[in-house]
Amino acid sequence: MEDRPSASIEFQVTTDDTARALLSGELEVLATPRLVAWLEAATCAATHDTLAHGQTTVGTGIVVDHVAASPVGACVIVSAVLSRSEGHRLAFDVEAKDRESGELLGGGVISRAVVDSETFMARLATRHAPGV
C-alpha cells in the first residue's frame, strides 16, 4: 500500500483552550472549536511537504464528533491521514486521543482544497475592494 501523507501533533490543554474561554460553553474543559482547530493543524502539517512552492490548502468542510471531555492539563494527540485526493480536493481522516489513557476524544473527516496562495489572496482583495 502506498504511503499516504499524515501527521500527528501533541497539544496540552490550557485555560485558553476551554469552552469557557472560547465562549462555546461554561465548563473548564477542552472546547470543541479548539479541538477542531488542532485537527485542522494536523491536516496542514500532513500536506506541508507535499505542496508545490506557492501553494497552500484552505479548509472546505468539517465533520467532527467530539465524544469525550479533556480537563486543563491533559495532553491531546491529534492526527490526520489523507484518505482521498481528487484533483485539488483533499479529504483527511482525523482523530484526537488522550495521550495518557489512549481514550478517543473525537474524530471525523476534514476536507481541504489546494490553492495558489497569491491567486487566492488576489481574488479575495478584488472581491473586497472599496466600491466593488
Rank of each mutant, 00 (worst) to 15 (best):
I9V: 15
F11N: 06
V13N: 07
T18M: 13
A19G: 08
R20M: 06
L22D: 13
L22K: 06
L23C: 13
S24R: 01
G25D: 00
E26F: 01
E26N: 07
E28F: 02
V29I: 06
L30P: 09
L30D: 04
E40T: 08
A41N: 12
C44S: 12
T47D: 12
T50Y: 14
H53W: 10
G54L: 10
Q55L: 11
T56D: 14
T57Y: 08
T57C: 11
H66D: 12
A69P: 03
S70M: 02
V72L: 12
A74Q: 05
C75V: 14
I77E: 05
V78Q: 01
V78L: 01
A80W: 03
A80L: 11
R84W: 05
S85Y: 02
E86K: 08
G87N: 05
L90E: 01
A91C: 04
F92H: 14
F92S: 11
V94C: 00
K97C: 00
K97T: 00
R99Y: 02
E103R: 05
L105C: 01
S111I: 02
A113E: 11
V114C: 00
V115P: 09
D116Q: 11
S117Y: 10
S117V: 09
E118K: 14
F120P: 02
A122E: 15
R123M: 02
R123F: 06
